[in-house]
Simulated scan of single mutants.
Amino acid sequence: MFFASDNTGPVHPDVMAALAAANTGYAPGYGADALMDEVRERIRTVFEAPEAAVYLVATGTAANSLALATLSDPWSTVFCSPVAHIQEDECNAPEFFSGGAKLTLVPGGDRMTPEALRATIAGEETRGVHGPQRGPVSITNVTERGTVYSASDVAALCAVAREFDLPVHLDGARFANALVATNATPAEMTWRAGVDALSFGGTKNGCMGVEAVVFFDPKQAWEFELRRKRGAHLFSKHRYLSAQMAAYVTDDLWLRLARKANDGAVRLARGLKAAGAGFEWEPQANMLFPSFPRRLHKALHEAGAQYYVWEGDLDGSDPEEALTARLVCDWSVSDESIDSFLDVLRS
């Protein structure tokens, strides 16, 4: 019963096999390996973007921070949700890698609205040299609360950014889960909607540790290469990143794994609702935030369930007080583990 994060799950066998196959003989380093040529062409094909610049890094923080630094000036501000990963979970890495660009939070919840974004952008760049200058908009899809922007939602936010001539970055650590949830194509969710740069996640969805950064306009390519090297995120034995990503985008493995995770979340959410759990955010992808009594949280933890109590104190005194959990399904989740979790909850 492992629902702490999709980071905690195993690597898919196809990815492990690709790593093993790459681990023979010699190959050029720093992204000059033949596998990277294959990855570049496959991602361009998947996104219907033949001119896209494609790069690999090992972590989501590196992907987001280096992409945003490439789209920003040090005196810029990045517009994002108050609960965006770049705001809550990256230790000011975007500010660090950009040389000082700050984050400006768009009021509201996990999903920005065009109206709130427009008002927030308009409120900046009003103090001349004394204030931050408007910089990129960063959208997280799937959001940090498990909700999803449709392709038309992304397009509406991009349209606001274009009103101010600002670039758009999409944090897609769970991009595959968002596509499966909305039935959008990769192109519809990105460049056709107006996205300039994508952090295309693999680590949370069956890879060992690899993320792609995709610039749909290759004019950003050289600057990103320089920032990646200067930021110590250019792997010398790059073929091991390439091997993972090559396997990930072959035969739609990335979408099949996301569909398995999303389907597991649907099964889990159905059982939780039947058991009386409430949801602050309606589940839409592979991440759930149900609320149920403290006594049931304690029973689940005692039974070996692994997940985060998101809101509330597990050690509080009132057994009936509702606490909110965060439950995340990864590609390897089984019906048996979900049913075991629900059996404890019901008992």
Rank of each mutant, 00 (worst) to 15 (best):
F2R: 15
F2I: 14
P13W: 04
P13V: 06
L19K: 02
L19R: 01
N23M: 11
T24N: 09
G31Q: 08
L35F: 00
D37N: 01
T45F: 03
V46W: 02
F47P: 00
P50T: 08
A52W: 02
V54T: 02
V57P: 03
T59G: 06
G60W: 00
T61D: 12
A62T: 11
S65K: 01
S65W: 08
T70D: 08
D73K: 15
V78A: 09
F79T: 11
C80L: 04
C80K: 02
P82E: 02
N92S: 13
N92D: 12
E95P: 01
F97N: 11
G99P: 05
K102S: 15
L105E: 13
V106A: 13
V106M: 07
P107S: 07
E124W: 08
E125T: 13
T126Y: 05
Q133S: 09
R134N: 07
T140H: 02
V142R: 00
T143D: 13
V160I: 13
A161T: 09
F164E: 05
L166R: 04
H169R: 04
H169M: 13
R174F: 13
A181E: 01
N183A: 12
A184I: 02
P186T: 05
T190A: 03
W191F: 12
F200Q: 01
T203Y: 07
G206D: 06
M208C: 12
V210C: 07
E211W: 04
V213G: 03
D217Q: 00
Q220A: 10
E223S: 11
R227M: 13
R228M: 14
K229H: 10
A232R: 09
R239S: 06
Y240I: 09
L241D: 05
L241F: 10
S242Y: 03
S242W: 04
W254Q: 05
R256N: 10
A261N: 05
D263M: 09
G264D: 11
V266Q: 03
A269F: 03
A275I: 06
A275T: 10
G276L: 12
F279D: 11
W281Y: 15
P283V: 14
A285E: 11
F289G: 02
R294Q: 12
H297Y: 07
L300R: 01
L300N: 10
H301Q: 14
A303M: 01
Y307D: 09
V309G: 06
D313Y: 12
P319C: 06
E321V: 13
A322V: 08
L323E: 05
A325D: 01
V328F: 00
D330H: 12
W331E: 01
W331D: 04
S334V: 04
I338E: 03
V344W: 03
